[in-house]
């Protein structure tokens, strides 16, 4: 209802004294959410098959923690190495020298297209293709030679596979980040006499980070979960550690809950770290909440 004031009434209202509007749909939705949550809580606490005591027993089991350590180690190393390689690939894709561009595009197409599980199996079985690995002049003398089976352990195969896979994804993320920076910034840096390398590392990349970090965070999380694949090449990661237990005890659900718990702990820690990084690289930018980040 609209009320039309006569000229006589003008100035008699102050919106500061307004009462909130009744919002019945919100009350209904709130009630539905409360009932739903209560139901889930009841199910989780009153279903004996969750076997919470078993969860508690194995939560800090040394084998589980060792598996967790392996998963985190693989994630961090593959992420760091993959990011460095990804930056180089992104630069290669933006290079003005054709062959470099083609090779980088080919790499990304190949390694983004092959499932990581297949890559892990492939690298683990590299010895079938190359019995010996050697360093030397191509088609010339060799300086050293090693048996592939000695070099390719489950750990190295997992690291190589995850890193190469990760690099292909990071390359696309970094490329999008670089392209998001105003080309005028590059001009300005070059105009001041910075070299190409200084321009990239000091001016372009720090600004590109604002665009690079959010998808990289998701990438980090999916990589952590992706480490569960390494159990196929007999690597004892977190999932493999709980599987080893439930293969003997058949306590599948509680052991999976143990794994879920630790994955969620690490992912939550990562999200926090991501938030910190976003603030760090958002300096001089207005935040979504409107205050200045400094």
């Amino acid at each position: 209802m609209t009320t039309t004031a006569t000229p006589h009434d003008l100035g008699h209202v102050d919106v500061a004294t307004a009462r909130p509007r009744p919002r019945p749909w919100r009350w209904l939705l709130g009630a539905l959410i409360a009932v739903g949550l209560a139901q889930v809580a009841w199910f989780v606490t009153h279903n004996p098959r969750f076997e919470w005591p078993v969860v508690a027993e194995y939560l800090f089991d040394p084998n589980v923690l060792a598996g967790l350590g392996t998963s985190v180690l693989l994630t961090v190393v593959a992420m760091l190495a993959g990011s460095v390689l990804g930056v180089l690939l992104a630069l290669g894709q933006l290079a003005d020298f054709g062959p470099v561009r083609w090779v980088c595009t080919l790499y990304i197409g190949l390694f983004r297209g092959i499932p990581p599980l297949v890559q892990l199996l492939f690298w683990f079985n590299l010895a079938y293709l190359l019995p010996r690995l050697s360093i030397g002049v191509p088609f010339g003398p060799t300086f050293g030679s090693w048996s592939t089976n000695d070099l390719i352990t489950p750990l190295t195969a997992a690291l190589i596979g995850l890193t190469l896979h990760e690099a292909a994804y990071m390359a696309e993320i970094v490329r999008a980040g670089i392209l998001s920076v105003d080309p005028g910034q590059r001009d300005a840096a070059m105009a001041m006499g910075f070299t190409g390398g200084q321009t990239f590392l000091r001016v372009v990349l720090p600004q590109a980070m604002r665009v690079i970090i959010p998808p990289s965070g998701s990438q980090f999380i999916s990589l952590l979960k992706g480490t569960s694949l390494v159990s196929v090449i007999a690597m004892t990661d977190l999932l493999h550690a709980v599987q080893t237990v439930y293969n003997q005890t058949y306590q599948i659900v509680p052991m999976l809950i143990v794994a879920c718990f630790w994955y969620l702990v690490v992912v939550t820690a990562l999200s926090f770290l991501q938030q910190r990084l976003e603030r760090r690289f958002g300096r001089g930018q207005r935040s979504t909440r409107g205050e200045w980040l400094a």
Binding site: D182, D187, A188, A191, P206, Q207, F281, R283, G284
Partner: peptide, 15 residues
């Protein structure tokens, strides 16, 4: 380095 340039869009480094 021996020349100075000023751009239409300023191009200060925002970070």
């Amino acid at each position: 380095r021996r020349m100075g340039m000023v751009f239409q869009q300023f191009q200060l480094f925002p970070h």
